[in-house]
Design a protein around this nucleic acid. Structure first.
Lengths: 335, 335
DNA sequence: TTGTACGCGTTATCAT
DNA sequence: ATGATAACGCGTACAA
């Protein structure tokens, strides 16, 4: 068994309530006594029993994160940042990799102060609806529009921003690299943004411009790009890439094939992370910076915890971060 | 606030201690009363308060997993399996992505029953040593030999097995693909196994045979393999690949270059996962199957929890899984 | 300034 | 078969 405040009290020759006050740094305890108690606590390696505390306080200073798809890397950076930020507010983050329903139950039993759910689909969420969670829940990145309190990123708008910018600097033939398979509904939003924006500008879309990468790994981007550039005449003056890793692959291909960026072709990458380190060229990106997402999620969680009330869905708007992978297009191909 | 047993008691017109017994399915409660109580509990959506329970029982049926490197995919499959297995024993798994020291503190405060630490290096572990954890700790995959209770995999022996097998079927020129950078100490163990085994057999090693992939992604294996096979004369009759993704890359390269496996060259891959799905050829692998690792870890955790005593380090021995990527070598190059 | 007593939700022990 | 009550470790209102 661990050390309790009673053990400390005995050692210090005071009552255990005094110890409790001292450790919580209450002004109701004299400095010398406080110092002494704290010293003894450290000596004994005292760890406050959160269990007992949260029982009496009805607050555990703990946030539960539901993380059923641990095997996907995508949002792991995000959760790392959220964890750090919550820690600064002296909250502890606990992850569960169970299915949504069972994770929610667990966190309710554990009496966490709030639950953050990552990237679930609507079906799964609906299944968990009958559980009346005492603990407030916040969803991130769910795959369909939703009536549940949600924070998400406007991926569609992101790609539209990219198209608009490229249009503004003279590009008319704009290609899109992305995984278009049915399962990747996040990717699909990006594709829709591309299509919409192109149509709005009356730009033609053809199969030469839509490049399915058939996967989201670096290698997939690399292969797609190699085949793309093997065309006699490259069918576009600009590329929009649907994800970080794809972009890395595209850049490896352009380096290898000595396709100059941005001289030969412009490039914009979808990205939240903004850490294209060790890479030949810093690409122009579009997306919601991960720090902004994290900050907003943290704030919302703290809000939910203190007010018990959740204002509904928040959709974060993306921004364009200009670097040197884009250049004006002055070719005759302009209409 | 949530529903408590007292709420149920009021509804059912019994005392709350009867409710407690009924919900724990005690034989001391008459069937009809029990049924009634359970029904009401379900109606109200009652969730037992683990906090209170673990306070009195001094047991939380919870295992804490320290997972500081969430951004690396490697052991995520493993943890998924362990989670499932612990669940079958009605234990809940909770992850922390904090630094080791702070995670251990957290789990102690939370009064979990055991802590499982993933893939930390010795420095980090030493730093946490001064914390006298009330909760028993089990380490997995730490990067140096250790005095702490540990379960790990014998990577060195795995690669030796591979070399030995290839030797037995007539290969003398055996190449090794792996990331040899200083930071990858797990990879290094594999390289050492390769070197040792080759030396034991008096097989010569030269730079043509040791292929640093400079990364562990599919793409890295692909590139390394392409350059490897561009040699006029391929310098080996067999390849040992240091990891799953590298192997996938190598296979893509051989397919592309029409290098027949195993006709032209034999291949053995290091692997725990054994799920080379969607791949052209099922390679022969060597390693400890992930299910065996998971099972052993789960067992050890449960043991530790019940006995409070930990028998020291367990090193799991790898096995060879023969598939069709190897073939006897009958060339003259045999000594 | 310090100590006493009660309550948080649950389980376990003892009476009834 | 059921109910009353103590205990788990802590925080806090109130008494000293």
């Amino acid at each position: 068994m661990g050390i309790t405040i009673k053990d400390i009290a005995k050692q210090a020759g005071v009552s255990y309530s005094t110890v409790s006050k001292a450790l919580r740094n209450s002004p109701l305890v004299k400095e010398p006594t406080k110092k002494k108690i704290i010293r003894i606590a450290e000596q004994l390696g005292y760890q406050p029993n959160i269990v007992a505390r949260s029982l009496v306080q009805k607050k555990s200073y703990t946030v539960g994160v539901v993380w059923p798809t641990i095997e996907r890397v995508a949002p792991s950076k995000l959760i790392t940042i959220i964890n750090e930020q919550l820690e600064e507010h002296s909250y502890t983050t606990l992850l569960s990799i169970n299915k949504l329903e069972s994770a929610i139950k667990t966190f309710n039993r554990l009496q966490v102060d709030a639950i953050l759910v990552f990237g679930e689909n609507k079906d799964e969420i609906d299944k968990s609806k009958h559980i009346n969670s005492t603990v407030p829940i916040l969803y991130y990145g769910i795959k369909e529009d939703s009536v549940y309190p949600t924070i998400d990123v406007n991926r569609r708008l992101a790609i539209k921003l990219a198209v608009d910018y490229l249009f503004k600097i003279g590009h008319r033939n704009i290609a899109f690299f992305g995984d278009l398979s049915e399962t990747e509904s996040l990717q699909k939003q990006k594709y829709l943004g591309y299509k919409e924006a192109m149509e709005e500008r009356n730009l033609s879309i053809n199969n030469q411009l839509i490049i399915p990468t058939n996967g989201l790994e670096l290698y997939d981007g690399y292969l797609a790009a190699k085949s793309f550039f093997s065309n006699k005449k490259i069918p576009a003056t600009a590329i929009i890439s649907g994800s970080y890793d794809l972009t890395r692959g595209i850049l490896r291909a352009t380096t290898e094939l000595k396709v100059q960026i941005p001289e030969k072709i412009s490039l914009i990458s979808y990205d939240n992370i903004q850490q294209f380190e060790n890479i030949e060229i810093q690409p122009t990106t579009v997306g919601v910076p991960i720090n902004r997402i994290a900050k907003r999620i943290t704030e919302t969680l703290l809000e939910i915890i203190s007010s018990e009330e959740l204002n509904n869905s928040i959709i974060l708007d993306p921004e364009l971060s200009l670097f040197d992978s884009c250049k004006e297009n002055t070719e005759e191909s302009q209409v």
